[in-house]
Design a protein around this nucleic acid. Sequence first.
DNA 1: ATGGTTGTTGTACAA
Length: 261
Amino acid sequence: MKIATFNINGVRARIETLTGWLSEAQPDVVVLQEIKTQDEGFPADPIADLGYNIETHGQKGFNGVAILSKLPIEDVMRGLPGDDADEQSRYIEATVVGQRAVRIGGLYLPNGNPQPGPKFDYKLAWMKRLRARASHLRMQEMPTILLGDYNVIPEPRDAAAPDKWVDDALFQPESRAALRRILNDGWTDAIRLRDPDNARGPFTFWDYQAGAWQRDNGIRIDHILLSPQAVDLLIDTGIDRDERAKDKPSDHVPVWVDLDA
DNA sequence: ATGGTTGTTGTACAA
């Protein structure tokens, strides 16, 4: 079961970017972030034509997440538990049934800039809620993966120029510690597992500005966290870096795992 | 060097 995350940066503006990648990469399951549309505006037809079931959790103008799956989708949950007043569409969770059932949480973690300030406070509060949800899921002892745009640079080597990020919410000690707490609870960073000793990179995001892609001035903020039961099923991981060089790219590229499930 | 780009919405904002 090939499961991917892709921050598409506007699914209506980039529907051909998305369908082109889906046709080429043939993922079984995809979680999307920043669809930037309400559910009724989601361009479902060209995606359904490629064989995908679709569940969306949209929002007007900003944010918005979705799950696409060639396999049946069950028990969909929209929104991250823990704050009934939170109206931002940043989390969708569902079970996908292949040879075995896998629980999948797709997330778009708050950016948090500028920091300090209310947006950074919201980011840290959201990460506390995510940790609680992750612990609940882990205790179910089912193969589970939590993947998406985490908006956290875990370590200096996850940025081409870490000194440029020291004042940014993505690289604050509090943001990094909150992610590390979740990992220390028993989750595995699937991409880092592949090359644990890499001195620099790999990256998943390159800004549109200042020739960041051409200079390979990237960061790694799109992550795939595996529960212990999912780690046992891991076959392969990848970053579809070439997507960033194509026409009308997102500023993020797809990141994926292949599970024996 | 406080630059540079993109999508959505509305002529600003979030990223």
